[in-house]
Every structure is written in structure tokens, then in C-alpha cells.
């Protein structure tokens, strides 16, 4: 095998390997998707975040507008403090309502933002006041069972 032929093959090989890596990063992974433009931070306090994880998407009307950056427990109020990194192109009014939703019955959890009617926008670093906690399936079921049990006992009388 002549040297030039080897060089060409090695060149093709390295390029193919790098293309595969690029494909994995951009097409398979979220490197392309998570590109936020000039991100700014917002945060919100939730009573219960359920199974929310760091890097979960923040969506508004189904469009990804940011990602969860950090989750900590506020030791003063014992609420979960969730910090988001938001895309600079999207701004939300001060009375925006943040909820924790689940994609499908078993899917991953994400933060949903519903803008209100306040003319002023949230500034970077501010905290969203109006939140709704994650729906915890066990609580829901137990509430349903207790309420139906109460109903049953009252109708017996």
C-alpha cells in the first residue's frame, strides 16, 4: 500500500468519525436543541416539584423557551426553588403562571408557563409568584378514594 493511499484512507476515516460524533451530538443529542440565545435566569417556588429534573424543558404553548438550570430547597419556606435559563427572544409578563406538567401519562415532566395580562415583563433574576405544584399521582388517588368513601358513608345514612 503506497503512502498517499494510506493518507487518503486515514483522512476519510477521521472525517467519518468526526461526522459520526457531530451526528451524535447534534442530531441524536440535545446540543443543537438546547442552544439558548443569550440566556437569562428566572426562578419559581413550588410546593412540590414531583419528578422534575435538571435540564428538563421549560415550555410555553408547547414551544421550548428554556431549561431547568438548578433545583434547591428554600430552607425558609421549605419550598422547592427552581431556576430556569430562558431564551432571550422570549419574555413573559409579571403575572405568568408556572405549572409542572407531565408529557403523557408516563412521560418526562416539564415546566409550563402561561402568560397573564400584566403589561410589564419579568426581569432577569426575578421570581415567578404564581405557581402550581406537580400533580402527584398517589395524592390524587387517595383524594379520590377518600372522597368516594365519604360519599358512600353519607348515602348510607
Amino acid at each position: 500500500m503506497r503512502r498517499a493511499t494510506i493518507d487518503i484512507w486515514v483522512g476519510i476515516f477521521v472525517v467519518a468519525g468526526l461526522v459520526a460524533l457531530l451526528f451524535l451530538s447534534v442530531r441524536v443529542g440535545n446540543l443543537g436543541a438546547s442552544k439558548l440565545q443569550n440566556p437569562y435566569e428566572l426562578s419559581a417556588l413550588f410546593d412540590n416539584i414531583g419528578g422534575l429534573k435538571v435540564r428538563a424543558p421549560v415550555k410555553s404553548a408547547g414551544v421550548v423557551v428554556g431549561r431547568v438550570e438548578a433545583i434547591t430547597l428554600d430552607s425558609a419556606t421549605y419550598q422547592a426553588k427552581v431556576t430556569f435559563r430562558m431564551d432571550d427572544r422570549f419574555h413573559f409578563s409579571r403575572d405568568t403562571f408556572a405549572t409542572i406538567n407531565t408529557a403523557g401519562l408516563l412521560g418526562e415532566q416539564y415546566v409550563g408557563l402561561e402568560p397573564g395580562g400584566d403589561p410589564d415583563d419579568l426581569k432577569p433574576g426575578e421570581t415567578i409568584k404564581k405557581t402550581q405544584s406537580a400533580i402527584v399521582l398517589e395524592k390524587l388517588i387517595s383524594q379520590f378514594m377518600f372522597s368516594s368513601a365519604e360519599k358512600g358513608s353519607s348515602s348510607n345514612k
Binding site: 460524533l21 451524535l24 451530538s25 442530531r27 441524536v28 443529542g29 440535545n30 446540543l31 443543537g32 436543541a33 438546547s34 435540564r55 424543558p57 418526562e108
Partner: peptide, 16 residues
Amino acid sequence: QMQANVDFRQDIVNGV
């Protein structure tokens, strides 16, 4: 779904 679940740092860099 793939892009939502495969994280660049956690999965791809670690794989490499």
C-alpha cells in the same frame, strides 16, 4: 424524543 432524552454532556461526552 431522542433529542429530549439524550444529553450531550451526560450521555455523549461520557460515551466518548
